[in-house]
Amino acid sequence: MVAKPPSVALRDLRVKKRGKTILGPLDLDLEATGFTIVLGPNGAGKTTLLKVLHGVERIATGTVSWSMPRSRMDQEQAYVFQRPIMLRRSVRQNLAYPLALLGRPKSEIAIQVEHWAGRVGLGNLLDQHAPRLSGGEKQKLALARALIRAPSVLFLDEPCANLDGRSTREIEAVLQAAHSDGTRIIMTTHDLGQARRLANDVIFLSQGQLHEQGAAADIFTNPGQPKTKAFLQGDIVE
């Protein structure tokens, strides 16, 4: 089990790049529990929103307030990047890294590494050099490395882009298990089928604006905005 996840509120938030507002102004509240999927066309600002929430994007205006002190929040969250970043080390050392940073004892780290490697099906690749893994294996390693600190909030940016069906299914299973263990998940995806399978609630972004937010069941059956509806039907939306 993980610590009780925090909720978060964004107010009047803007992110600017080269003088252009690429996200916002937006207000957004996220509950402390659930599995949120961020949807939207390419360039809508999904990645930027995730990075803002994670605290690694510079914001131009507004506030991001977590219901947990910032110092604790830093330890309680993890992020899986769209292109997995592999340390030039073995799979074992990649998994151990986040715990080693926290100064955990070697014996505990070894147990956790074995456990998480098994969870994502990398148990027999522990001594492989991580940069040489396949795309699917890298993404699974990145996911396990994110979960090994038992974060209460987990961000994922299109974790299954370019993966085959089998890897996608394995990753979804791990995500669902983490979710039932109490981890708060906020994730972007291009795969509407995946969104339907996983989401409790959905955020729809377009051109840096929050267009719609609501329970997955509602949005998928009865989207409130024409743009959301068009997007969910598979029309080309900007």
Binding site: H54, V56, D74, Q75, A78, Y79, F81, I85, L87, Y97, P98, L101
Partner: peptide
Amino acid sequence: EYHDLLISLNT
């Protein structure tokens, strides 16, 4: 190569 990961892990 490592920048985003090391920032994310709050190193």
